[in-house]
Nucleic acid binder design. Sequence first.
DNA 1: TAATTTACGTAAGTTTACTACATATATAAG
DNA 2: CTTATATATGTAGTAAACTTACGTAAATTA
Lengths: 285, 285
Amino acid sequence: MHSQNLINVITDALPSLNKSETKVAQVILSDPDAATQSSIATLAKKAQVSEPSVNRFCKRFNAAGFPDFKLKLAKSLASGIRFVNRNVDPDDDVTSYTPKIIDSTINTLAMVRDKISHARVNQVVDKLIQAKRIYFFGLGASGSVARDAENKFFRFNLPVSSHDDVLMQRMLASTGGTGDVFFVISHTGRTKEVVEVAEIARGNGSTVIGLTAVDSPLADMCTVTLDVDVPENTDEYMPMASRIVHLVILDVLATGVTLRRGPDFLPHLEKIKNSLKPTRYRNEN
Amino acid sequence: MHSQNLINVITDALPSLNKSETKVAQVILSDPDAATQSSIATLAKKAQVSEPSVNRFCKRFNAAGFPDFKLKLAKSLASGIRFVNRNVDPDDDVTSYTPKIIDSTINTLAMVRDKISHARVNQVVDKLIQAKRIYFFGLGASGSVARDAENKFFRFNLPVSSHDDVLMQRMLASTGGTGDVFFVISHTGRTKEVVEVAEIARGNGSTVIGLTAVDSPLADMCTVTLDVDVPENTDEYMPMASRIVHLVILDVLATGVTLRRGPDFLPHLEKIKNSLKPTRYRNEN
DNA sequence: TAATTTACGTAAGTTTACTACATATATAAG
DNA sequence: CTTATATATGTAGTAAACTTACGTAAATTA
């Protein structure tokens, strides 16, 4: 199993902690890297609690003791994931908002990595393998995700198309049937048009796959749903990470399909790759 | 250079170590994970040396002492493992290829975060702020990136469009002039058509921004380039992380523009957000 | 072979972390 | 509202771990 990032675990547990534990958590989260280098005494002093409180805190998070906790914390920090404690401020400059945005995306991806259901991924790959035809549907920001998916999946040598036009989507959904897979992408899963389209497709016996939010109306309508629980962007400055997550999940699915197709399929992919060579300037490296 | 993996550093230094240091190194290298969890006493015993020898060994590798050394070792272990098996194997199953792909994307983003030039980002934001019109150009996978960019930047209340049609791109480039910004996206930066389009636009006095590879023909042609040095995908199974990187950089740019516009601009963004509400099913949360 | 440097270990000292216990605070019951 | 009980937090002592100082042994050089 994948070990969940300690920093996220602490953040999630924050509301359930008692007074002194909260103090310790805050000190650690405010500068996790410093925490890995300080002794139990310094940390206790910073958090204004006693040393045993720090020790108990560590044990609460399944560490053998303080040193073991520091070790685990260091490991979490090393995986390229940094804790983003602040959203972009109006007075941030390039040097601060750039890493903030990238870190926030990284964080979201790490969360998805730890929470995504492998069983579901497998189910979706199953459906995609069996598909005679795949339609990728998305509106707005999800429109470009759908388009990217088309660009990935046409390589599998089966009819694939993407659509961001609601009327087109309705028409295609109503003419679909067994063997057709409608892959519906939506961040909220609450856009009426999209949900209706899914319903129509479902009614005709098509397979409907949803890449959308948990417990959304769209999710309820699908044959299989890959639910992504990306925190809503409340902050005006914060860009939606869900597109990125969706794209990466589509990468995962494409990889799954490729692997299922087996090694005999690789020459086909190679052929597509090579087809682009004549369009490029030679690389001198 | 970036901080090298401690295990590699030790391996490299192996020939230059003296007797007891070699013993210590061998014990650590044989099971680095165990080393991070053992005390200086146990490690000394295993290596058949005295405790101070272990301590000196740690200091030789720029650690403050044994605990600090363990910390550094743990860090390189955490990031190292992920780097080592980051490629998808033909016999991987869902539980292994899913985290691999996500981790690989995370690693790429972390690299970009550390290497991206803030000065360049600032320059590009400058150009975008001054633009009277923005065209996003991209082909293939970059086509959907361009489309996503359009979806982000139209919010700034200025004429924005995206194009993935080479002929259309040529025509627009040839009619452009001062005040027009052509934002050209290309993973390789070597696609002839794209480079030519950039050249045409440049010739007419337009600003050409490139989101592309370092030292590529396209990069040479641009007014400002945001070079992204994403490792080429040699592995058939590995999806291109560059799209993701491009999208995130566009997020950064959009944020930069938003911040420059100042707080007076926020109501406008809010208005766009609210415009979607009637299209959605209510969220009961 | 002697001088000098480098390597290594012993033992003492110092820091660090843990445990057991006591007190305080909060919660529930009467 | 008081008492009982559980929970939370701190104090002090102890054990373990780590570091330093110093001395001896080995290796290197003159």
